[in-house]
Design a protein around this nucleic acid. Structure first.
Lengths: 109, 109
DNA sequence: CTGTATCCCCCTTGATACTG
DNA sequence: CAGTATCAAGGGGGATACAG
C-alpha cells in the first residue's frame, strides 16, 4: 500500500444496509424492491430506497424500471459492481476468523 | 459467502481516522502518540485517543506505556492485527481501480 | 408496488480547555 | 508528552404518513 485508498472502498460499503443489500443481490442475482424489503429484516422503505440509490449512483447496482401497472422495479449487481465480489469475500472470510478470535479471547477469561 | 460477516470487518475499519491510523502504523511499524498526530492531518487528540482505544480493545493495535517522565507511549499493529493486512490490501487495490473507473466515467460526459 | 415527504433522535465528530 | 472533560454541531438513520 503506497497510499491509502482503503477509504474509497469503505465509502461504497458504508451504510447500515448496504452489505445486506449486496449480499441479497449476490445470492438472488435480481430482486424486486419488496423482495429486498422482505429479505432484509428491519429496513424501512426510506432507507432501502436511499441506499439503493447510492449504490446505483456508484455504478454498483443496476436499477431497471418496467413500464407496467402496478410498477415493477428490479435491482441487480452491475457488471462493474461484480468487481467488488473478491473484496467482499476477503472481508467476509476475515470476519469469520475474527468471530472465532473473539470467542477464544472471551473463553480464556 | 454463505452468510454475511462483511459487517464484522467493517466494524473494525469504521471510524473516520481508523484507516489512516492503520496505514501509518503499517508503514512505520511503531509510533508514538504525537507522531501519529503529526502524520494524520486534521485529527484531534480526542479522536485519535478514542480510535486508538477502540483498535486496542479489538486486539488490532498494541499500546505500550513506558514508565518515564515525560510520558512515552508507543503504538503498533498487533500480531493479530496483521491478519487484517490482506483485507486492507484487497480494499486498497479495489479503491485504486475504482478511482480510475470514476475518472473514465466522468471523462465520457 | 415502489416509492416521497416530514419530523425527530442519537451518535459520531469537532472545538476547546484542562491535567498528571 | 499523552492524554481527559465538557459542550456543541451535523448527519445518518428511524417512524410515520402520503402518493403515482
Amino acid at each position: 500500500m503506497s497510499e491509502c485508498k482503503v477509504e474509497t472502498a469503505l465509502e461504497i460499503l458504508t451504510g447500515k444496509w448496504k452489505p445486506k443489500i449486496l449480499f441479497q443481490l449476490l445470492n438472488h442475482k435480481t430482486m424486486r424492491f419488496n423482495e429486498l424489503m422482505r429479505m432484509i429484516p428491519g429496513v424501512t422503505q426510506r432507507m432501502l430506497t436511499q441506499h439503493l440509490r447510492e449504490l446505483e449512483e456508484q455504478d454498483i447496482v443496476t436499477r431497471t424500471v418496467y413500464a407496467e401497472v402496478p410498477p415493477k422495479v428490479e435491482y441487480s449487481i452491475s457488471d462493474y459492481g461484480s468487481t467488488l465480489v473478491p473484496v467482499l469475500q476477503t472481508m467476509d472470510a476475515w470476519g469469520r476468523k475474527h468471530a472465532e478470535h473473539i470467542q477464544n479471547r472471551d473463553e480464556t477469561n
